[in-house]
Design a protein around this nucleic acid. Structure first.
Lengths: 101, 101
DNA sequence: TTGGTATATCGAGAAAAGTCGATATATATT
DNA sequence: AATATATATCGACTTTTCTCGATATACCAA
């Protein structure tokens, strides 16, 4: 876990919003539901993109970045990729900051 | 407290190091001591600059940034400015991340 | 296999951050 | 007042980040 890369990932308004939205998908994405019927698999790129107002390519890259640093997990199901918070990693980050910072 | 600005301030190797060094000045700056004789007032810009290897202007700006976002406090004594961790703010950040992130 | 939809990647331009040397300001000393 | 030291600010250049449109890839349906 590279602390600097983690903080860089968090140093962006949209990426922070995405992490907030993924905390409570049913609240933040009330109109959508997982196309594959599996619950708790996360939210697909398109829904996040529409809510963000940024372009598809930007959001795809942002999610890929959040995934690279381990803050979210990604699951491909058919043509959709579902992104979901990695609560373990996020909790560890909180501890990391509380203890080492 | 703007979260994004906070994370930006932390998204830099040197600034993270400075925060670490200020956690234990006697350990990280064994050769130096506060010129004004007051203990626990912090470490002056010059000492931090020498340890960092970067230029005076860069470190001055970094410390000013850390101060602006509230992570350190600054005390001017004569021609020196002493910077010191703001433990309250840092602890709050840990909580902020653990609770809202 | 052809076309449609979802996501990822590429290339580019604009904006921000990193970093420096030079200079300005503040303070202390003589 | 003149000089010396510590810190802050300025201007410039380089590198990184933000963001987009265009294109490529993956998958599905007919």
């Amino acid at each position: 876990m590279d602390q600097v890369e983690l903080f860089k990932a968090l140093a962006n308004k949209t990426r922070l919003q995405i992490l907030t939205w993924l905390k409570d998908p049913e609240f933040y994405f009330p109109d959508y539901q997982s196309a594959c019927g599996i619950d708790d698999i996360g939210v697909c790129v398109g829904h996040i993109q529409k809510k963000s107002g940024l372009t598809q390519s930007t959001i795809s890259a942002y999610l890929s970045l959040l995934h690279r640093v381990g803050l979210v997990s990604a699951t491909r199901v058919g043509q959709w990729t579902y992104y979901k918070r990695n609560e373990t990693a996020i909790a560890k980050l909180g501890q990391l900051i509380s203890s080492t910072l």
